[in-house]
Simulated scan of single mutants.
Amino acid sequence: MLIDKPSFPIMLLSAAALFYQPACAQDAPSPQQALQNFGISAAQIPQLERGEIIGYDVSETSQKELAIGVAMIMPVGLPRLADYIKKGKLNAGESDIIATGMLGDNASVDSFKKFAFTEKHLDEAKAFLEAEPGDDFNLSKAELDSLKSLQAGLEDADNKTLLKTANQKYRELLLQRLQAYKKSGLAGIAPYSRDGGTADPAAELRNDAVNSKAWARYFPELQQAWLNYPATLPTNTSEQFLWLNRRVEDRPTAVLNHRVIAIGESGGIVVSRQFYVGHSYNSSQVVAGGLPYKDGTLVFYSIRSSTDQVAGMGSSLKHSIGREQMKKEMIKRLQRLNKDMKLKPAPVAADE
C-alpha cells in the first residue's frame, strides 16, 4: 500500500530545466503550441498568466506507473533560471537527501563511499546481506547469488564487520550497475528478482522514452539517442551521472541517475532517468522544460514513476492517491524555486 510520503523520484527535480532549441530540434514550438502539446488546456492559460501553478495529465503506460505534470509562468528571464539549475541549487533544500555525488568517467567503488549503512541502520545492513527475491531490495538474481556467497563467512561476524561488508558490497553492486548501463544502456539494466517473477526497469524506461511524444516531436534525434543510449548524443547537449543516498520510507536508498541537459538562448530541456533504485519504486523518468513567455519563462515538468505499490487490487484508488502525493511534492518544489528567485509565493490553481 502507498506510504504517507511518496517514495517516488521527486529528487529528479534536480534535473528540472528548460526547453531548448538545439541543432537537433525541428521547428521550435511557440509557448501556446507547447502548452497544447503537453495537454495543458486553453482554460488553464489564464491561471498560468496569473502566476498560478497548474497540473496536467501525463499518460501512464502500465498499472505500475504513476505520471503527472505541473507548470507555471515565472516573471524572470530564462538565463537566470538556467544558471540556478546548472549550479545544482534546485536540490539544495531537499531534506531527505542524505548524500549525493557526481560520477565521472573514472568512477570506482570509492565514488560511492558516502553511501553507507550506519549503526542506526544496522538492521537494514543485515537485511541486505540476507536479501531474498522480493520487493524489500531491488536486486537481480546474480546480485542475490553474490550475497549468498558471502553469508557463510559472516556467521560469527560482529556488527562492525557486518556494516563494513554490507557497505562494501553495496558499493560494488552500484558500480557494476553503473558500468553495465554506460556500456549497454537500457539493455544493461538487470531486472529485479521478485517472489515468483521479476520487475523490469529497463522495459519501464524504454516505454517511457517511446511514449515521450510531446517533446520528441521537436527533438527526435535527442529522443532516439535517449532511447538507444549509449548512442551518440546530439550536438549542444551534455550528460551527467550522479548517485544519491535518499531517505525513502525512513530507509537509506541508493539511486543511480542519468540526465541529459541542453540549455540555450531560446530555452532548454532536460531528460533524466533513475536507472537503479534500491527499494520502494523501480524506475523513473523526468522530462522538464521551459520557454520564454512574454516577459517571463514558462516552466513545466513531468514525472513518470514505476512502482509495484500501485498495481493489483485497488489499483485505481492507489493511482489516484499516488498522483496526488506526487503533485503536492512537485508543487512544493516549484514554490521553493519561486522563493529562491525572491518572488511572491506561487499560488496553486483552484482545481489543484
Rank of each mutant, 00 (worst) to 15 (best):
P79T: 06
P75Q: 01
V70E: 00
A125Y: 00
E132P: 15
P133G: 06
G134V: 09
L81Q: 02
A127Y: 01
S62V: 09
K126C: 06
A92P: 13
D110A: 02
A67F: 05
E124V: 12
V70H: 00
A67V: 05
A67W: 00
P79M: 08
F128Y: 07
N91Y: 11
E130T: 08
L81G: 07
E119M: 10
E65A: 12
K87Q: 15
M102R: 10
F137R: 10
A82R: 05
E65Q: 01
A107V: 13
L122K: 08
S108F: 00
E65I: 04
E132Q: 12
F115T: 10
L129K: 01
A107K: 11
L129S: 06
P133N: 02
E60T: 08
V109Q: 09
G134E: 08
G88E: 00
A131I: 12
A82H: 11
A131M: 00
V76H: 12
K114F: 06
K89H: 13
R80F: 13
F115W: 03
E60I: 15
L66M: 07
A92Y: 09
M102P: 07
A82P: 02
A92W: 03
N91E: 13
I68W: 05
G134N: 03
A116R: 15
I97W: 03
E60D: 15
L78F: 12
P79H: 14
A67H: 03
A116H: 05
D135M: 11
S140Q: 02
L90R: 04
S95F: 01
V70Y: 04
F117P: 02
S95R: 09
L81M: 08
K89A: 13
D105H: 11
M102Q: 04
Q63C: 08
T118P: 05
Q63V: 06
P79L: 02
K86I: 15
A127R: 07
M74A: 14
T118N: 07
N91G: 08
I98A: 09
M74Q: 14
K86D: 11
S62L: 00
L90Q: 12
D83S: 14
G104C: 03
A82S: 13
M74T: 01
G88W: 10
N91H: 13
L66Q: 02
T118H: 11
N91F: 09
A127V: 06
Q63W: 01
V76K: 03
S111P: 06
I73Y: 04
I68T: 11
M72G: 07
I68R: 05
G77A: 15
A131V: 04
S108C: 09
E94K: 15
S140K: 06
L103H: 05
K120H: 11
P75R: 03
P133M: 07
G93A: 03
K89L: 15
E94P: 08
D110F: 13
D83L: 11
E130C: 04
H121T: 14
G93P: 01
D136Q: 10
K120R: 13
G134P: 02
K86W: 02
K120E: 03
I73Q: 04
D123Q: 12
E65P: 13
K64L: 15
S108G: 15
L122T: 08
F137S: 13
I73G: 00
G104R: 10
E94Y: 13
F115G: 05
F137L: 14
A71Q: 06
S140F: 01
V109K: 04
V76M: 14
E60V: 08
P133R: 04
K87V: 14
S95I: 08
K126Q: 12
P75V: 01
